[in-house]
Design a protein around this nucleic acid. Structure first.
Lengths: 189, 189
DNA sequence: GGTTGCATGTAATCTGTTACATGATTCA
DNA sequence: TGAATCATGTAACAGATTACATGCAACC
């Protein structure tokens, strides 16, 4: 069970609706996990059946009604158990790396376009993560916040997301530069 | 189809057996994809059926016989097509991040143990990747090799793997330091 | 005599993706 | 008038993990 615990961890922040969770687990904000709406709604149903979360209906006027979910004691216990159990190593699984692995045998032009698209995406996420970090720590310095803040989990995961995207950006830019250089050299022959 | 293209890209290196592929896609060396033996053998069967790869039996004496696979023209074409098509963004999906997200609510001791285990794993991979890079570029400098080397795809993906693991190591160490500091502060109250 | 490495798979299950489905409100 | 946001799902399929299965040779 994979998403399961990510959802439980997300609900530590407080009550969230399925829709709010889909936002949090979507492209923009998912700094510690990614999932699609369908998967989330299915998982919420399962978790509620298992009594690890509980929902309450909120009637709204101008918008569709929604259900806000929160962790139960059993849910928190499950999360504690999960955290204590050994974690498996994580691996990169990325189409773009596969393509670069094949770079010597395929069209470089299309590949460079994809690398620069990925770099742009990374830059957007770096921006976003920077803003999230600033908003979490308020006017404290990072050191201050990490020493005395009351909730640092999301800050720490966001830091990893930031570094990851900086790595993506730098690697994409470097790879583009290398491929471009070789292209030039090739033309001259 | 995900593994599919990763296998095709791996076979650009030349003929490989299923077993050799399992080594390459395993913990140690998988710098651009990860997969388990079962998945690989199944994928090889599918690829052979689809004529994207072809295998030849090699009879051995002291060891079990094996089959060496190589790309067909159709396989190379498939890989080219794949590389030209748009790549989806990649996301982090990591149990350990979920656990750190919950750090404020769970047992920190067990979590720090896992972080330091992950850091050790990252250090081992950093070592390995460093060796692989050195062996690929031989006595050339990196710049030299990247400008004129005949096969740079694997080198470039290995660079990404290296940076990723450095990021893991640094983040794990930083997170441990933060948690330890807070633990100390907490005890003093 | 036990572990590691070579070499290859099947079967059941769990997870994740893609496609499809609905319907109101707000904003440009 | 059309797109974006809110709000929630079902169904079919593809992909990955876990458990199980076999058997010989080399090395400690």
């Amino acid at each position: 069970m994979a998403l399961r615990h990510a959802v439980l961890a997300a609900l530590l922040e407080g009550e969230l609706s399925g829709y709010q969770l889909t936002k949090a687990f979507d492209l923009g904000v998912a700094n510690f996990w990614y999932a699609q709406p369908q998967q989330l709604y299915a998982e919420l149903t399962r978790l509620e059946k298992g009594r690890l979360i509980a929902g309450r209906e909120v009637i709204q006027e101008a918008r569709p009604n929604k259900r806000l979910f929160h962790l139960t004691d059993a849910g928190l216990a499950e999360l504690e158990e999960f955290t204590a159990a050994a974690a498996k190593p994580s691996f990169i699984r990325d189409d773009l790396l596969v393509k670069v692995q094949a770079a010597d045998y395929v069209d470089t032009e299309a590949l460079m376009a994809q690398l620069s698209e990925r770099a742009a995406f990374a830059r957007a996420k770096i921006d976003l993560f920077g803003k999230m970090l600033r908003s979490m720590r308020g006017d404290r310095t990072e050191g201050e916040f990490l020493r005395h803040g009351h909730r640092i989990g999301p800050y720490l995961t966001c830091l990893r997301g930031l570094a990851f995207e900086e790595g993506n950006r730098d690697w994409c830019e470097h790879t583009i530069a290398v491929l471009r250089e070789r292209q030039k050299a090739h033309v001259q022959h």
